[in-house]
Design a protein around this nucleic acid. Structure first.
Lengths: 245, 245
DNA sequence: TTATGTAAAACATTATACCATTAATCTGAT
DNA sequence: ATCAGATTAATGGTATAATGTTTTACATAA
């Protein structure tokens, strides 16, 4: 009966990445700190520079560090964001594991709840930001992408107002996927995003009435989502022609 | 104004990774296929083996390929799973961006909805699997981790039954984080997971009544979540002592 | 038939050299 | 004294080659 444990083989680079990651999570290195240079790490870990580099690439890919070239360059510890989580969702979406109706179904559950929490956490600062975002939404702009930025701003503010980072990261992912669909087909924003679309939602939030906010958001997501699903066919026709990371 | 686009500097390895990823998403390579060997890719891309390796590590890290050593080894395309998404959530959790109350709040919203969908998609196959899982839940076992496996099985089946991969990936993430908390403190499962805890949920699902399933799951998550939050302090004491990838 | 040894394919790692980028420093003219 | 431009040094980026390690398939002998 299993007298010996199998000799587990780690890749050298993984062992290195593991140790560095642990240091970061333990607080030995904090956001903004610079890790030792690749050459110095080579000596500390007693492995080749290649192994160090692979480890750093791995940490970079999971969002723990960024690297810069040049004097005073190196690997800098970052404050972990939801960006890489969003990328993971994006990959599943691009691989067609997640469909547009899936996306819509989740938004319909998550975003009203986020709106409710946001209404409950309302304060003057948030109020000001929401009104500003709403005001800027319907200003005429040239650039398609900038327009999308403005149309999504309200959702991000509400996500932040939920004071729940899981929800915030989730909303960021949902909006990123939605936005991809729109940008893929370059949908006319007038159609998909009629002027003033978010006004009822914001107004409900501003009353501080969670239930009203919930309902207003639900109505918004429903309307928007139905338009979005109509675009599904157009999306699948143009898909794959240009893929982002 | 902007007449010229800036000459964007990609790392060679990123350019390579991008091209391979695009091939996979376009279906040039399918799950199970083997990519050319590193040396062959070196010739195709006309870059060093280093660059190829970094690209492959990157793709491996995002879950698109696995690599094996030896004869007939190489980089094999995989069917993308939610595993790496779960890792991204785990990192945010370990970095204390996501708290246990955050986690609970999201579960309370997501899982009842998943239960509702599951009830609506009920069929004989699912029925059988649910009953089996329920039966195995309270069998006495030696191993702590195996016990946790059994206690989470019902949630995974329901997630699958939702027939929405976004929800499924989300539930997998939520359960993984929850499980981490439990395993970190090695909570007595009798306390946190009383025998028969999932029975009311499964029974509601089996009636096919979405609304009943919704309510039953809500009640379950609430009870369980309250116990979980009581463990929060214990969790933060033992944290960081052992970090997984 | 069944071990056991051997070879080959492929990734894993190391080592070394050189290239490219960047911030700081120096230098000199105004 | 100040500012522009050149120089320098640190650091990551890339390339190449050699060697180590793992795994499978196959041959060989008991």
């Amino acid at each position: 009966m299993a007298r010996f444990k199998p000799v587990k083989q780690f890749r050298v680079s993984e062992e290195v990445a593991e140790q560095i990651k642990k240091s970061i999570l333990q607080g030995t290195f904090r956001a903004g700190d610079r890790l030792p240079s690749e050459r110095d790490l080579t000596e500390e870990f007693q492995v080749s520079r290649m192994a160090i580099r692979e480890a750093l690439r791995s940490l970079e890919k999971s969002g723990f560090i960024v690297t810069r070239q040049g004097v005073n360059g190196g690997a800098y510890v970052t404050d972990l964001t939801s960006e890489h989580l969003v990328n993971a969702y994006m990959d599943l979406f691009l691989a067609e594991k997640i469909s547009i109706p899936d996306l819509y179904q989740v938004r319909l559950v998550v975003e009203p709840e986020v709106a409710r929490l946001a209404a409950n956490n309302l304060n003057e600062g948030y109020k000001k930001r929401l009104l500003e975002a709403l005001e800027q939404e319907d200003l005429p702009v040239q650039d398609f992408y900038e327009d999308n930025d403005r149309k999504t701003a309200v959702h991000f503010i509400l996500a932040e107002m939920s004071r729940n980072y899981f929800f915030e990261a989730l909303v960021r992912s949902l909006i990123a996927l939605t936005r991809r669909v729109i940008e893929e087909v370059r949908a006319e924003n007038k159609f998909i995003h009629p002027a003033g679309m978010h006004r009822p939602v914001v107004e409900a939030i501003l009353t501080g009435d969670g239930e009203a906010a919930y309902e207003a958001m639900k109505k918004h997501v429903k309307e928007f989502g139905e338009n979005l699903i109509k675009l599904e066919k157009a999306y699948y026709q143009k898909k794959i022609t240009s893929l982002s990371s």
